[in-house]
Amino acid sequence: MSLLYHKSMAVLDKIVPSKLQPLWMHPAGPKTIFFWAPIFKWGLVIAGIADLQRPADTISPTQCGALLATGLIWSRYSLVIIPKNYSLFSVNLFVAGTQCYQMYRALSYRHNQKTIV
């Protein structure tokens, strides 16, 4: 698999326009996992935004807490690694933000249910 990757990158290196070469050759550029992992992680943000339409009684505070913690931990990590990965930082900040709001909705709903009874 590594041989296939290296050969395909050698071909693509010749095709990438000179204006895009700094991005292409960057240590966190498209030739690395540091670029693609945050791109795919935006799926969690999209799912979190879609979940804003869910009724609050179906939200799992445990799941929200886990995703919130993950978002905060990886946001911090992305700023201490070398090279700094700002795309990883931004996606994890959004994951944490959406889950923080979902956690608020779930806990608020549960609190209101206790005061009604």
Rank of each mutant, 00 (worst) to 15 (best):
N112P: 08
I59D: 04
Y77D: 04
L67I: 04
S78M: 04
F34P: 01
F89Q: 00
G97K: 11
K84E: 07
N92R: 06
P55H: 15
S2F: 15
R54N: 09
P17I: 10
L67S: 03
M25V: 05
Q113A: 13
A47L: 11
L44S: 02
S75Q: 01
Q102F: 10
P61E: 05
Q99N: 14
K31V: 00
Q53C: 09
W36C: 01
P55M: 11
P38D: 03
L12F: 08
H26K: 00
G43A: 14
L79W: 02
H6P: 08
K7F: 13
I46D: 02
N92W: 01
D13T: 06
L93T: 10
K31C: 02
S18H: 11
S108W: 14
P30N: 00
H6R: 13
K7G: 14
L107C: 12
S87T: 07
T115L: 14
Q102N: 12
L4G: 15
P22M: 07
G48L: 08
W24V: 00
L79C: 03
M1W: 11
H26E: 04
F89D: 05
L72H: 02
I116W: 13
H26P: 01
P55S: 14
A50P: 06
H111G: 12
Q21G: 07
T32H: 04
Y86P: 00
K31Q: 00
F89A: 02
V11S: 09
R54E: 09
S90Y: 08
Q53N: 10
C64A: 11
S90C: 12
F35K: 00
Q113L: 11
I33Q: 00
Q99M: 13
S108R: 15
T70E: 01
V11A: 12
L52E: 06
Q53E: 09
L93D: 04
V91E: 00
L52Q: 09
Y104G: 06
M25D: 10
S108M: 13
G97C: 13
F34E: 03
C100F: 15
M9S: 06
I82L: 12
T62V: 12
L20H: 04
Y5F: 13
L72A: 07
A28V: 05
L88M: 10
Q102E: 10
I46M: 09
C100P: 10
F89I: 03
A37I: 07
V117P: 09
V16T: 06
M9K: 08
V80W: 05
R76W: 04
C100S: 15
V16H: 02
A50K: 10
P55C: 10
S2V: 15
D51M: 13
W24K: 05
S2P: 14
G71H: 00
M25K: 11
I81K: 01
I81V: 15
L23I: 10
G48T: 05
I49P: 05
Y104P: 07
